[in-house]
Design a protein around this nucleic acid. Sequence first.
DNA 1: GCCAGAAAGCGAAACGATTCGCGCAAAACC
DNA 2: GGTTTTGCGCGAATCGTTTCGCTTTCTGGC
Lengths: 326, 326
Amino acid sequence: MATIKDVARMAGVSISTISKYMNGGNVRPENVQAIREAIAALDYRANPFARNLKIQRSRSIGILLPDMTAPFYGTVVMALDKTLREQGYHSLISVYGSNYGLERDNLRFLITNGIDGLVYIPEDITCDEFYELTASIGIPTVQVDRVIPGVSGDAVLVDNSEAVYQAVSRLIEKGHDRIAIITGPKSVLTAKERLGGYLRALSDHGILFDDELVISDQNAFATGYRGCETLLGLADPPTAVFTTNYDITIGLITAARERGVRIPEDMDIFGFDCVDVCTMMRPPLPVVHQPEVEIGQTAANYLIERLGGYDGPPRTTRLKCRLAPE
Amino acid sequence: MATIKDVARMAGVSISTISKYMNGGNVRPENVQAIREAIAALDYRANPFARNLKIQRSRSIGILLPDMTAPFYGTVVMALDKTLREQGYHSLISVYGSNYGLERDNLRFLITNGIDGLVYIPEDITCDEFYELTASIGIPTVQVDRVIPGVSGDAVLVDNSEAVYQAVSRLIEKGHDRIAIITGPKSVLTAKERLGGYLRALSDHGILFDDELVISDQNAFATGYRGCETLLGLADPPTAVFTTNYDITIGLITAARERGVRIPEDMDIFGFDCVDVCTMMRPPLPVVHQPEVEIGQTAANYLIERLGGYDGPPRTTRLKCRLAPE
DNA sequence: GCCAGAAAGCGAAACGATTCGCGCAAAACC
DNA sequence: GGTTTTGCGCGAATCGTTTCGCTTTCTGGC
């Protein structure tokens, strides 16, 4: 590999002139010419390790998230990556698989590997642990989708409670009064918020809450599938079901159809995520649509601002979900 | 941030002793004690930039792929990341969104950022371009799922043709002789191979090929959904459909169910990917199941071996797909 | 108690860039 | 034409490690 020294020798100028050229400084035309030729001849590329050491930055951003197989995460990460890349950053992505030990380890791993900033979808870590790992480094962090209670810093969330409130209200306005909800684990912030929106909608419309109609389990196909069996087995089954996650929705629909349950006549379903798939169904399945791309972009921009020196107070954005069809 | 120098001063030993301690060399017990205390007191962590510069490695692996929202890719990447991490490597993931310019740019980006190795799911790049970007660096590369014609190096593929052959044969053995296929774009290697398996199965069983029954388009929900409409609109519709991608499968099923087409009585479907979802349906939807985790692990291990100094000839593995249910 | 060999510690030289301050030459001004 | 201003180029220091070769200190066998 050619070094800056080789280029300098070949072009007949000093090392510092090469560096200046590489970083956009003023260099005399005849030198520019010579430098260009030398670089081409030697196929020179600046050594990123040396540069990183000198400037103490890597232009890499850690992205830590629980899972990558769900389309929601995939889309958020793609938007993040794209926005960051446009600013010359690259993403060091790390997936912890909803596993507490791994979440901690991977966070440590990212931090000890010289990231300039962190985008984090947290799950089980505590505030103290987070600060312990993170404090000595002092890199900007943006939390996405969920927050660690007590941690300050920028955050990008969606308005879960409000979105679910509206969706469930819509079901109520259609005449339903036995509405079930199948949701994720109660330990996760988003599931809690979504459940909250459901309860608020019921109570605001004077409907008594029936805990037989609340199913909370993993965010997975099986939860929706089995949930359908459970709900249909009740003495007084619900006429509508709200699901808070795409996999759950698909599981529910699959089970319902296998049993000849007509949607929406026998069971009205309001889903979550994957608007493009759900709106293609006939009739379209109404869903809460999270703004994945906007989430990613907002988080990336927050981070880019901080990395650019912005030092204002922590910001929290709650992006609005859309109901689809409108 | 504390440096190794600070630790040395505080512990009363030389810099090289600290380095030796950090890298597992022999150090006298009383010094170990002092060093430990100094490290704890100063919260010292080795600066990754300096280390990278010195050893000219980053222990990071570039992963370049077209998409991350499909569960297939997500699962492969998670397996890759896990295996690599266990060996102390981390993943620099880059998604190019099936966009030619981006594919090239992102490859360059990874390469100029000091990756030690590359895992690559290629799409449109040519052999020459690949070598031009890659040659001067000389890092090991593993191609996954598809290969660039002409590029040598380790590769991990699946046995697409054979898997589809078996699946379609199964449909034929059940008595079907009008079997459609809905597949991805013909420009992509995997789609070509899968189509090849389909044709071979037909011809081996003496069934005449009818090009009305072949639909090739994007790997997307809409392709399956519209494909269903197209196929049902034929004068002589197929009695079975083979789909070569999960999104296509789901689109097809959705459209079929909306039309009251019974599966498998009216239309027998054989799908691809997402075995856990499809086998939960009742009756289970038969699918070709790609070994995503094994793909990721094999690719990671190939790379780890190369990085460990192994220098044998290029290896290509074709992993076998499973039909599920068996 | 001596000496050889092993173990542990030390200083200094890298790794390859960026950057600072200084000097020289060309341009600009009157 | 002399003097100030500006523009470029240069050398040297620096970033924080690892590593090499050498010296010092231990250890153990006689």
